[in-house]
Amino acid sequence: MSFEMLIAFIQQSVRLSSTLLLGSTGEIITEKSGNLNLGTPGIMASGAISGIIGAYFYTKSGIPFNPIVSILITFGCAIIGALLTTLIYCFLTITLKTNQNVTGLALTTFGIGISNFIGSLINGKMGGTGIAAFPEIGEAYRATLPFADKLGVFGKIFLSYGFMTYLGIIIAVIVAFVITKTRVGLNLRAVGENPATADAAGINVNRYKYTATCLGGIISGLGGLCYVMDFAAANWQNNILDQFGWLAVALVIFAVWRPNIAVFGSIIFGALYVIGPFILGLSNKSQELIKILPYLVTIVVLVIVSIRDKKENQPPQSLGLAYFREER
């Protein structure tokens, strides 16, 4: 691999990693509250399409284009869209105590379906060229610091990304801090580990579950937005986000429920995903086979963690279980 290619490879890996990082950071918060949200791919898709909806109406409105306004609008739309989707999951699993796996899978179907539906609708209204594209907004999302280019290799490796890359890392670091170092984080972990104990200690279990899952959904949704606006430069494509959604869920396991590990994990996953074309002389077949690695690595981590049976690395103890006080 030549030097330029190496740098391009790193850049590609990091660009993709932001989507995975945001997706999995959201899922980590959710899982820490004891909710296994398999609707994450759907939530990411709904966040992404909501951003596209915002972009469509903004560009259509005839208001002179302003990159910052375009970011604010798409960002706000993505948050609302992801939140609404997540609320369905919350209401069903927390209030109505439905099975989390089934609800999550149905939510993925729902989120992917609705994003494809709206995507096609917008695509149709924009002339039906096959993709709904908003190049200006893509530019806005991918804008780098003006001096990044002048800093040579350092600038290329560390400063050549849109703001969402840095935002993702900041969110992950903040979430890691909140979970491990604050009272709220302590209470949240207690809810996911042992809701009955948390309840007895005076913690409002349902409120924590709702808040954590909704916040997690919003962050995951931003992951979807990041993909469509930054990585795909504001081009909408149907059915693209579910694989990244599942990769984000895998990354949660890989990172043993720690967002700070997820920062590095997401870059590794991103690298494994994009490495194919960068290895010279690698056939198409082998490139395809390399895409298996993120999943295989995740499985290996999952199995090793269960064999070592170290308490700190286990999934939250009551993950996937509904809590009903009178069932103690």
């Binding site: 398999l38 599942w246 895998a250 395809e288 298996i292 999943y295 295989l296 499985i299 999952l302 269960s306």
Partner: peptide
């Protein structure tokens, strides 16, 4: 080892898809 089967089987889906590709 009581490995979490939900997450394991989920990952196996994507391993299968990649194998097919």
């Amino acid at each position: 080892w009581n490995t979490n089967e939900t997450l394991f089987t989920l990952m196996m889906n994507y391993v299968a898809m990649t194998l097919v590709s």
